[in-house]
């Protein structure tokens, strides 16, 4: 097996584990961060697959803005009492 295929397989395993964790853990913040990790690894895979345009979009939007939007939505759906911690 060549080095490049090994890198792809390792990164794919990391993505699949992160996606599984995102669906499994009870804590919503951890789950949102895990989805961000999946997006970040996806952007690395796009870069290795000779798609720099898509890699830039995914890194800026998928891993950055999307995570923040989810976190804001999570913040807005908490009860007022829990917020003061």
């Amino acid at each position: 097996m060549e080095l490049q295929q090994g890198i792809f397989i390792l990164m794919g395993l990391a993505m699949i584990i992160a996606a599984g964790l995102a669906m499994h853990v009870k804590d919503l913040i951890s789950s949102i961060i895990a989805v961000g990790v999946v997006s970040l690894f996806a952007s690395l895979l796009y870069l290795l697959m000779q798609a720099p345009d898509v890699a830039m979009t995914e890194a800026a939007i998928g891993a950055g803005l999307s995570t923040l939007i989810f976190l804001y939505a999570l913040h807005k759906t908490k009860d007022v009492e829990e917020e003061n911690d």
Binding site: P52, D53, A55, M56, T57, A60, I61, G64, L65
Partner: peptide, 10 residues
Amino acid sequence: PGGGFQGGAA
């Protein structure tokens, strides 16, 4: 590499 969508996201 890049363009309107990426620059807008930045």
